[in-house]
Amino acid sequence: MSSSEEIATRKARLTTLATAPHARLLALWQAFGTPPAHEMLRAPEIGTVMVRGRAGATGAPFNLGEMTVTRCSVRLDSGATGHGYVQGRGLEAARAAALIDALAEDGQAEALEAAVLAPLRAEAAAARSSRAAKAAATKVEFFTMVRGE
């Protein structure tokens, strides 16, 4: 069984791949080199996930609506397996995510971190902070009018 640290690393990796823009993910993956030989455990498949919310944000779960997701699972010749989940409809992106996950499980985690995951994370962080900075500029600073005089 994997340690909690290994689970956290893999979770962070898969989450980064899932939320990355497909074109960026594919560009970085192609630049990484020739895809390794692999066997499809589950061919790329488009489906949905029912997204849930909670009544009053903290109460009973309810079904808010679905989102599109594409998933894929692969096995490398070494036996390492990889699972890819990406938001939206992207057969190639899901396959790339599965292969990246498998290679990372197969000892190439550091190289993939540098070539693919770190850039994706940095770009996502930049997009987030750009929105946060625009939001911050619309924060209201109240001042109280002095009456009389």
Binding site: G47, T48, V49, M50, V51, R52, G53, R54, P61, N63, L64, E66, V69, R71
Partner: peptide
């Protein structure tokens, strides 16, 4: 449908 998410 692949499943349901955790509540957001």
């Amino acid at each position: 449908r692949f499943g349901a998410s955790d509540p957001v």
